[in-house]
Computed example of a mutant assay.
Amino acid sequence: MDIHEDHWTVEALLAAFDEHLQGSRGLCLGTRRNYAGHVEQFLKQISPAGVVDTADIRAVDVVDFIGSSAKRYGGSRTVGHVATSLRSFFRFLRATGLRTDRLEDSVPTVQHRPSDLPRHLDSTQLARLVASLDSWSTPRGLRDGAIVLCMARLGLRSSEVVQLRLEDIDWRNGTLRVSKRKTGHGALLPLTEEVGAATASYLQHGRPKTTSRRVFVLDRLRTGAPISESIVGRAVERAVRRADIDAPMRGANLLRHSLATGLLAGGATLGQIADLMGHRSLTTTGIYARVDIAALAEVGLAWPETAS
C-alpha cells in the first residue's frame, strides 16, 4: 500500500487500517471491526469535522481518550481493548510512513482488576451442566447439546461453532478442524468421544435435511439455514437454566472461561491453554491465572495448527 498524504477522511483512514490488519496481520473480520470501532471513536473525538491530519495526533489526545473511555465503560477489560486497538492503529501509521515516532508508547497501560477476571463455572457446576444434556432428545435439544459440548470440551468460540462445516470433522482420525481463529491461523483439535457422540447423534437424528454444509442449522423458521452466534448464546443459556445453575455470567464465553480455568487447575500450562483456546497472546491466557506474563517460561505448542 503506497501512502503519501497526511490528511484523510475518517472513513478512508479506517479502510486503510482494515486493509493493513487483514493483509499484514491476518486478523479475522470480528477482531478488525472491534479495532476499527474503537479507533473510529478516537478519530472522531480529535477530529469532529471528519478530516484527520495524522501528523497532528498528540500524546495528550491519546491519554485524554483513554481517560474518557474509562469513564464511559467503567470496567478495565473494555478499556484494555480500547488501548490495544489504539496501539495497533499507531503501529499501522508508523508502518505506512504516516508517522515516524512510536506514538503507541503513549497509550496508558490498563491493569486488570480481580473483578475483571473471567467468571466461570466450577468443576461441580460444569459436570452438572454436561450431565443434564443427556435428557435433551428433541432436534433442537440434540443440536444445543452438541454446541454446548463443543464449547465446554474444545473451547470453541461462538463464531467458530457457527462456521463449522461438515467436512471439518474427520471421523476416521478423530479430529475437528477450525478453519480460522483470531490468531489468523486454523487449528486441528481432537474430536473427543463425548463431543463426537453428541455431534453424530445430532447429525443423524436432529439435523433437518438441507443443502447447507454448515454443521449446525436452524430447526424452525428458515429451517436448514445456518445458525447465528446469538443462537449459540441462547443454547448455552438454556443449558445453564435447565441444569438449575446460578451462573456468574450469561452467554457463550461462560463455557470457554470454565474450560480454561479447569485446565489450569488440572496442571495444563498457559501455553497449552492458549493454543487450545486460540489466543494470540499469553497475556490473554494469563488472566486466568493472575500471573506476571513477563515471567512465564518458554512455551511449547501442544496443538497442531493448520494453514488458514
Rank of each mutant, 00 (worst) to 15 (best):
H81R: 10
G80A: 10
S106W: 02
S88W: 02
V110Q: 03
T78A: 13
K71M: 14
S115D: 11
D116W: 00
A95C: 01
S76H: 14
F92R: 09
V82C: 14
V79L: 09
F90T: 03
R94A: 14
S106H: 14
S88V: 09
A70T: 14
G97M: 00
H81N: 10
T84H: 05
P108E: 06
D105C: 06
S76C: 11
A83E: 02
V110I: 15
R102W: 05
R113W: 02
K71G: 12
F89L: 11
H81V: 07
K71N: 13
R113G: 12
L86H: 14
V107E: 04
T109Q: 12
D101I: 06
S85M: 03
R91F: 01
G75V: 10
R94K: 15
A83L: 02
A95V: 09
G67W: 02
T84Q: 11
H112I: 11
T84K: 00
R77I: 13
S68A: 15
G80I: 06
L98G: 05
P114D: 01
F90R: 11
A83Q: 02
T100P: 03
F89N: 10
S69L: 00
V110H: 04
G74W: 01
R99S: 09
R99T: 01
R77T: 15
G75C: 08
G74T: 04
G67I: 04
A83F: 04
G97P: 03
T96P: 02
F92K: 09
S85H: 04
D101Y: 09
V107N: 06
T109S: 14
S115V: 15
F89W: 09
S68W: 10
K71Q: 15
L103I: 03
S106N: 12
R72M: 05
L98Y: 09
G74Y: 04
Q111E: 10
V79R: 05
G97H: 00
R102I: 07
H112N: 11
L103R: 12
V107C: 08
G67H: 05
V82G: 13
L103E: 03
P114Y: 09
V107Q: 05
P114I: 08
R72D: 06
A95S: 07
S115W: 06
R91V: 11
V110T: 07
S68Y: 11
R113L: 11
R72Y: 04
R87M: 12
P108K: 07
T96K: 13
A83S: 14
T78V: 15
D116R: 03
R91Q: 12
P114N: 08
P114S: 11
S85R: 08
H112L: 12
R94H: 13
R77K: 15
R87G: 14
L98D: 01
F90G: 07
A95H: 08
L86W: 09
R77W: 11
L93S: 08
V110D: 05
V107S: 02
T109A: 13
T96H: 13
V110F: 01
V82H: 15
L103V: 01
A70F: 08
V82Q: 09
